[in-house]
């Protein structure tokens, strides 16, 4: 499956372990969240980078404690109409997580922009859709009414623009870690 990040297909540098797989010596490794919780004492000493694979029924507050130690959080869309991961993504960003947030599962170009807006930064996508269809989908709407979204270059928030004179308080959302 191609991995889409910053408008390009890239090679996945992460090793994705299951519940039973042995830990390598180092490198970038994702762990299912339930295992991460259970084996945290030993995992905390892992010399490489750690990522967590969540399900979309996991609670953000349970993940909160681990977020400062993670470089990747993976959130699944079992079906593209199952929108739970949008809210979990937003909660995780609200909790201050700055690392890579990856969407997997049934992801379509027509939902891509929503995913970037709630804070997803990489996407495991189907071969069915060429790079160009993602690039097109990412710039269909240049405006959003909601505030506090992640914005890419060329995207604006209507209310913030209208009231630019009203100095908005800084929010964690205004950073754009994957702009462009």
């Amino acid at each position: 499956m191609p991995l889409l990040k910053n408008n390009a297909f890239i090679t996945d540098s992460w090793l994705h372990l299951g519940a039973e797989d042995a830990l390598p010596e180092g490198g970038n490794v994702t762990i299912p969240f339930s295992r991460l919780k259970n084996e945290w004492e030993s995992l905390a000493k892992f010399p490489g980078q750690l990522g967590a694979v969540l399900s979309n029924t996991d609670h953000a507050e349970d993940v909160a404690h681990f977020l400062p130690h993670l470089a990747l959080v993976v959130l699944p869309f079992p079906a593209f109409v199952d929108g739970r991961a949008y809210s979990i993504a937003r909660q995780i960003r609200l909790l201050g997580y700055r690392g890579e947030l990856r969407a997997t599962g049934n992801i379509l170009p027509d939902q891509f922009q929503y995913m970037t807006q709630v804070g997803f930064s990489s996407f495991e996508v189907s071969e069915r859709f060429p790079l160009q269809s993602w690039q097109q989908a990412s710039k269909q709407m240049s405006l959003a009414y909601q505030r506090g979204l992640y914005r890419r270059v060329g995207e604006a928030e209507v209310w913030s623009e209208r009231h630019a004179d009203t100095a908005p308080e800084p929010t964690p959302w205004e950073e754009q870690p994957h702009a462009g």
């Binding site: 929108g83 949008y86 009414y145």
Partner: peptide, 13 residues
């Protein structure tokens, strides 16, 4: 109306 229009988080409820 404005706030709910194309709300990225709440379009697949």
């Amino acid at each position: 109306r404005q706030w709910s229009s194309l709300h990225p988080e709440f379009s697949y409820l």
